[in-house]
């Protein structure tokens, strides 16, 4: 049996809102360690990988592995019914047909209970080995979101160039071009404002901005985003959770 209680419903709300436009049907695999999701978008360009570690929950028990096949659009509708600050408990039997969501308002005795029918989802799994990346950058997630949104007004593609002392984001379009250059900086008082670059090799990679527009929906999950890039291989965009992560793997674009 699964019983996982979130101190605040807002965390799961944010997670679902962050991935529901990238993937619709996915298996939430629950184990004693927490809940994991891996799913690929229909175009097979973007992969979502989620771990909600058991330490995120104020109470958590899962005696044996349970898979919850969830339609995220329906899940999102139900989860919006609860308040952000409510306790949220997920409950499922060992071989469940449905998952129950219990919202408890902390300021009153109101308890709301919803159940979502589950689906049999036959999704394949992509094996992702640990890789040595050419470059790892860490920067404020909100800045990355703004840069991508600004440059998406000009182009469908975002070019990222990384050298040891700068990160350059570029977009070239029919109406004009744009670029934003960032330099590494350490902010001792506000570490979440820091920008770091670890470089093994200089990077020059290009990505579709429509996919990046989906990735940056994870911005509210973490102050910082970690971007790991190698030339000509998928990049990893990561928002760290208190225990766990939301990762997106995005295949690059190539020159014709």
């Amino acid at each position: 049996m699964l019983e996982g209680k979130f101190e605040e419903a807002s965390l799961l709300k944010k997670v679902v809102e962050s991935i529901k436009d990238s993937v619709q049907l996915c298996n939430f695999v629950c184990s004693e360690h927490g809940i994991t999701v891996q799913a690929v978008d229909d175009s097979r360009v973007l992969l979502v990988s989620l771990l909600i570690g058991n330490e995120v929950f104020s109470d958590y028990r899962c005696d044996r592995n349970i898979t919850l096949g969830v339609d995220l659009k329906s899940f999102a509708k139900i989860i919006r019914c609860g308040g952000n600050d409510d306790y949220l408990t997920l409950i499922a039997e060992d071989s469940p047909d449905s998952v129950t969501l219990v919202f408890e308002d902390k300021n009153s005795d109101r308890i709301s209970e919803y159940s979502l029918k589950l689906m049999e989802i036959d999704n394949e799994f992509l094996k992702i080995d640990d890789m040595d990346y050419d470059s790892v950058i860490k920067m404020p997630s909100i800045d990355f979101q703004k840069i991508c949104r600004d440059l998406s007004t000009l182009s469908e593609s975002l070019q990222i160039l990384i050298t040891k002392d700068s990160i350059k984001f570029m977009a070239e379009g029919e109406t004009g071009n744009g670029s934003v250059i960032l330099k590494p900086r350490t902010d001792i008082d506000k570490p979440e404002q820091s920008i770091t670059v670890k470089l093994n090799n200089a990077v020059n990679s290009t990505f579709g901005l429509k996919y990046i527009a989906d990735i940056v929906k994870g911005t509210s999950l973490s102050n910082q985003i970690v971007i790991k890039i190698s030339n000509r291989t998928p990049a990893l965009f990561e928002y760290k959770l208190q225990s766990g992560y939301l990762r997106f793997y995005l295949a690059p674009k190539f020159e014709d």
Partner: peptide, 14 residues
Amino acid sequence: TGVQGRLDTFFKVI
């Protein structure tokens, strides 16, 4: 502006 790559090219399906 380039050809969009696919994840299947890089990751093994299991």
